[in-house]
Design a protein around this nucleic acid. Sequence first.
DNA 1: TGGGGTTAT
DNA 2: ATAACCC
Length: 454
Amino acid sequence: MINGPLLDYLSFLTSIHHEVVPTGSTSSRVIVHVDLDCFYAQVEMISNPELKGKPLGVQQKYLVVTCNYEARELGVKKLMNVRDAKEKCPQLVLVNGEDLTRYREMSYKVTELLEEFSPVVERLGFDENFVDVTDIVEKRLQQLPSDVHSAVTVCGHVYNDQAINLHDILHIRLLVGSQIAAEIREAMCHQLGLTGCAGVASNKLLAKLVSGIFKPNQQTVLLPESCQDLIRSLNHIKEMPGIGYKTAKRLEALGISSIHDLQAFSSTLLIKELGVSVAQRIQKLSFGEDNSPVTPSGPPQSFSEEDSFKKCSSEVEAKKRIAELLGSLLNRVCQDGRKPHTIRLIIRRFSSEKHHSRESRQCPIPSHIIQKLGKGNYDVRTPMVDILMKLFRNMVHVKMPFHLTLLSVCFCNLKALNTAKKGPIDYYLGPSLSTTTHSGKRSFKIKDTHMEDF
DNA sequence: TGGGGTTAT
DNA sequence: ATAACCC
């Protein structure tokens, strides 16, 4: 007889075997990219339905960071100066969006809804998600006899209006992906009241690029034969996700400005200029190739709050601002149910120079403070502000004149609660070891047993 | 350019 | 601790 543990061991060996030996048959994936329409503006219109139908902008400091489609039709653009926006569109209604709380909460509701379709959901910012629906597609196809594949239909647009070949299994899989994308968008609309776009393709890069083809509240599927057309439709390398400001500048210095330039450029020269990692990755991107997995985001790795301003030049003022940032963070962190083990202070100094480089100092949070973190009775704020001010004076020579334009506080190195009293494992390992066994990205949220203190 | 996030070095 | 990337 093969008993439990031995069986486990055999399936462990089998799973290794499966990882090491590629099956070759079906490594093709179906990825959905979900991109909410003007997310902050949508959240504001849900909060206050009187805003619906009016041109609406969401303001942070002197910028309109996003706006609804009514405002866009009147010439308002994302990240437009408030003065320019008002000039273009005097009827523009502005709401302040500096407090991200409601946006963050809605953002996670979206991710959680997507996780009901497949647990493999990767967040990108607050308003985009990738979902790997390969397994769902496979399950649905196994329900169907293959002679009935011809009954599968597409949902939404097909990129390039490319003809569908119902005898091509890759087409069929992507069409089923488009049906799942439609179900996802329908669920977002009915359960959360949100609209958005979706793109369906065989990898993250292509799904993301194709999701933006038909813009508000529509979806598009990319069939493999149109892949080259999609990437050639980009007018400049900077439009390629993964090629940012710095890399684009360095590529331009090499005479590379179009996607085709990058495709044709010598690989060895590119490696010499950018290093093997970046060079190989972006050159593959230029062909539409992207083997990066959809990595489940899980709970956040860090919590931060920041504030920017024209000028902060005294230690007293800095301390006030830091204490306020910390206050908000403490609320967030105790709601999360995990505990941060590291705290970081970030500053931006005023400089006439081109780019806003930031400086930071971090340190471990003393364990006696961590333990008191979930409990309202203890003042954790005063010692934490003291720590932050030490970090501050380590960066800023307060005896000398200084001029800051941003302060930010970040909690990171989050670990699950220490629930030592329960499990038999914990009993043997003791409390300090047991917390590290529970650490890691995919740890489950554990209810804070001290919440009634609040 | 705001107020966030992530991973790699 | 910084630098790059994403929104």
